[in-house]
């Protein structure tokens, strides 16, 4: 279907397609090839867009084939209710049925089912605690695969019951390779420069990079070729001269000008997080500030970032940061 987003369209279909995560691919391949059912409980963790969900879905598809997939795999993510009751009832009943070791077409298949708990770090700790015994008791018939971004939010008893795999952020070469593959398939002209920009904007997150690529191609349908400036625009990244202007305003030392500058930035709708991140990148390479001053500024940047995440007002935080920078630049 043409309306499918590319992230779904180009999701890896088999374990072989998964790029870069060599360890887990090797393990999974072994399991699939010798068919003994030695499938441990898995815990995948790593930053977003590195292929955690894709890996387990692809593995399940290879193990069970597309038909059995529906009855053998239970996927629960944070869009489902996942309190302690659901773990007790839904997961337990699903786990209790013993599946046969044969497919409908006569081929053998592993005699167990898989429960995928996606985004497991948003499960409450009581729900996680309810999982503990279930995981062990039903190990004859059911395997669990937990997926999360932060392993520190998974309780210790659970981590000790699983074999853990860390998904590394994808390397730049792999990202570029995959993006140019998609671009070729979709008939989009884009030069290497654009791809590099895409990769830089996406911070190792392949999903983000693909989404940006698709958006860019839709918006720039007529002009034919995607330029790196288009990518920057879509990613919401400020142009370098805007950042320069902010710092110039700070170096004038005039409070009124800084206030005006902040006001304008907010009116222009720029994301405050983005401004802070980019200021950080620029400031670290400035030679007119000594290390002590930089340290003070960066400490403030860290505080401001934290406050913003906790929901503080953008205008006040940005003003606070810029006034501090202004003081340090004097």
């Amino acid at each position: 279907m043409s309306t499918l987003p590319w992230i779904e369209k180009y999701r890896p279909k088999t374990v072989d397609d998964i790029s870069y995560q060599d360890e887990i691919v090797a393990v999974l391949k072994k399991i699939i090839s010798n068919d003994t059912g030695e499938f441990p409980n898995f815990l995948f963790y790593g930053p977003p867009g590195t292929g955690k969900t894709s890996t387990i879905l692809a593995a399940a598809r290879e193990l069970f084939g597309p038909e059995l997939m529906k009855s053998r795999v239970l996927e629960l993510n944070s869009s489902d209710e996942r309190g302690i009751n659901v773990i007790r009832e839904k997961v337990k009943t699903f786990a209790q049925f013993t599946p046969s070791g044969h497919r409908s077409d006569g081929k053998s298949c592993p005699p167990f089912k898989i429960v995928i708990l996606d985004e497991a770090d948003s499960m409450t700790s009581s729900a996680q605690a309810a999982l503990r015994r279930t995981m062990e008791k039903e190990s004859k018939t059911t395997r669990f695969c937990l997926i999360c971004n932060y392993i520190s939010r998974i309780i210790e008893p659970i981590t000790s019951r699983c074999s853990k795999f860390r998904f590394k952020p994808l390397s730049k070469d792999i990202l570029i390779q995959r993006l140019s593959f998609i671009a070729e398939k979709e008939n989009i002209a884009c030069d290497r420069d654009t791809l590099v920009t895409l990769v830089n904007c996406s911070e190792g997150d392949l999903r983000k990079a693909i989404t940006y690529l698709q958006c860019a191609s839709r918006l720039k349908l007529e002009s034919g070729c995607i330029k790196s400036s288009d990518v920057l625009e879509i990613a919401g990244i400020l142009k370098d001269d805007v950042i320069e202007k902010i710092l110039d305003t700070c170096s004038t030392g005039s409070f009124e000008k800084v206030e005006q500058c902040v006001q304008n930035l907010i009116f222009d709708g720029f994301s405050c997080n983005q401004i802070v991140t980019q200021l950080h990148d620029v400031l670290i390479e400035r030679h007119d500030l000594n290390d002590a001053k930089k340290a003070i500024i960066f400490e403030k940047i860290a505080c401001v970032d934290n406050d913003l995440i906790e929901g503080a007002d953008e205008y006040l935080q940005l003003l606070d940061l810029l006034v501090l920078i202004m003081k340090q630049m004097k």
Binding site: R207, I234, F267, S271, Q274, I309
Partner: peptide, 19 residues
């Protein structure tokens, strides 16, 4: 403001800034 929108949601959308 996008500061309070989690990155996982942001990366699934096309962002449009309206100044």
């Amino acid at each position: 403001s996008t500061s309070r929108v989690i990155p996982a949601v942001r990366s699934r959308c096309l962002s449009l800034r309206v100044p």
